[in-house]
């Protein structure tokens, strides 16, 4: 696994890109919820589409589509996997 400084956040990933989650830098209840939804280290998330007003953004994760606000996606670290 990479050093944290090389990682970017899910928020910065572009629509259509796939993103490998490596670190979930959140505490407490929200962390639990995100984990349960499949935002776990080792998961690949695909960025789908922003809402009409720009935020939230929808992601495909664990075979489902989940929308996150930028406050959340900024705390999910990892790397964009090129394809």
């Amino acid at each position: 696994m990479k050093d944290q400084s090389d990682m970017t956040t899910l928020y910065l990933a572009q629509s259509g890109q796939k993103f490998l989650i490596q670190k979930v830098k959140i505490k407490g209840d929200l962390k639990r919820r995100l984990l349960d939804l499949g935002f776990v280290p080792g998961s690949v998330v695909e960025v789908l589409k922003a809402s009409p007003l720009g935020d939230p953004v929808s992601y495909r994760v664990a075979g489902t589509v989940i929308a996150l606000r930028k406050e959340e996606s900024q705390l999910l670290f990892g790397e964009v996997i090129q394809r």
Partner: peptide, 8 residues
């Protein structure tokens, strides 16, 4: 606002 996740 606290955390937010919405399933589509």
């Amino acid at each position: 606002p606290s955390h937010y996740t919405l399933e589509l």
